[in-house]
């Protein structure tokens, strides 16, 4: 593929008719700042698809998730552009949020720290039942029956006993299962999981990832999973959005991203990961650290940390098609066609 044939594209390239969630050109700036924290990102999640949003602290991945949920405090930020479409209905994020009755119902969210997201003063059964009662009504007894079924569904043994227990009596993995049970209470179409396994041990992480994988298979629920762990991405994702400095720098099917990474940041992240099959030596790093939002450079936001950047990069790179469903925002992708490195 020669660079001449590359064409700028708009929005996600792989929009299937079954797209549950679609975010187009979303830009958000916090009040009192001059630079947008999230800058023109587009992504989509289809039924049964797991989209992993990967990036480091401060790349805007959680802000994006919170905005989709409408959970950012009012008056703290301005949405400069962005259309959200969910289950075929469109919302202009500049003026409106997702209606709150969808929240916790059609869209559910789980967080990194299951201890702080659960209420320590209420039993597990009450907390799951609350979510059922809120959206489905019915009696408390019915809701508790539903809660018991949900505990079974998320693989908790002795559910009758667990219903009566309080969060402090549960281990970290168990608490995350309870969080997932609450999220599933109303058969959501979309699950947003913000670093759901980061606080867990690796054997427990494997159990939770398998659970999420099984659930999307059984229920056809779409999942947007936020993570910083490329290992988790490789294990579970169908598609990947790599974020840097509030922008999606590369987006595509997981196999494409791992077999054919195009953006220097993606390549850097992959090189920086210690590998089991290639121990020792020095890791190739991504130099420096993410600049504070007010110091974010114009043009390509990665250019201050990129070994290949030059004056071309002061202009913002448009997303280009790099393969089937694969897009990348870099003036010099793929590298080998554009640059040489001399010792």
């Amino acid at each position: 593929m020669s660079s001449d044939q590359r064409v700028p594209i708009e929005g996600p390239t792989r929009v299937s008719p079954a797209a549950i969630l679609r975010l187009d050109d979303f830009t958000l700036r916090f009040r009192g700042q001059t630079v947008a924290t999230v800058n023109g990102i587009s992504l989509s999640v289809s039924a049964g698809e797991i989209l992993c949003v990967v990036g480091e602290s401060g790349c805007g991945k959680s802000v994006t998730a919170m905005s989709i949920m409408g959970l950012l405090p009012k008056g703290a930020s301005d949405v400069l552009s962005g259309d959200l479409s969910f289950m075929g209905k469109s919302y202009d994020l500049r003026r409106e949020n997702l209606p709150s009755h969808l929240r916790g119902n059609q869209i559910a969210m789980i967080f990194q720290e299951p201890m702080t997201s659960l209420n320590p003063a209420f039993s597990v059964g009450d907390q799951i039942a609350e979510s059922v009662l809120q959206h489905q009504g019915g009696t408390r007894a019915e809701a508790l029956r539903r809660a018991r079924d949900l505990l079974v569904k998320v693989g908790i043994s002795a559910p009758d006993q667990r219903l009566k227990e309080f969060p402090y009596q549960l281990s970290g993995g168990m608490r995350q299962r309870v969080m997932i049970a609450i999220a599933l209470a109303n058969d959501p179409k979309l699950l947003i999981a913000d670093e759901p396994t980061t606080a867990l041990d690796v054997t427990i992480q494997a159990q939770i990832l398998n659970l999420i994988d099984d659930l999307r298979r059984d229920t056809g629920m779409g999942t947007m999973m936020i993570t910083h762990d490329l290992g988790v991405v490789a294990e579970i994702a169908d598609s990947v959005a790599v974020m840097y400095g509030g922008e999606v720098v590369e987006y595509g099917p997981v196999r494409e991203i791992f077999a054919n990474p195009q953006h220097p940041y993606t390549i850097g992240l992959m090189s920086a990961m210690p590998r089991l099959d290639r121990p020792g030596g020095r890791l190739a790093i991504v130099p420096g650290s993410v600049p504070a939002i007010e110091n974010m450079p114009s043009g390509c936001r990665f250019r201050t940390r990129c070994a290949f950047a030059n004056e071309t990069c002061t202009e913002r790179p448009l997303p280009m098609a790099a393969g089937s469903g694969h897009r990348v925002a870099c003036h010099f992708a793929p590298l080998e066609e554009h640059v040489m490195v001399q010792a």
Binding site: I285, N310, A343
Partner: peptide, 22 residues
């Protein structure tokens, strides 16, 4: 491409390839 990245990070000099103007 990975080798190129490592070479550039480790202090190699990046030279643009001549290419057909788009």
């Amino acid at each position: 491409r990975f080798a190129l990245y490592r070479a550039a990070i480790e202090g190699g000099q990046v030279v643009l390839k001549a290419r057909v103007p788009t």
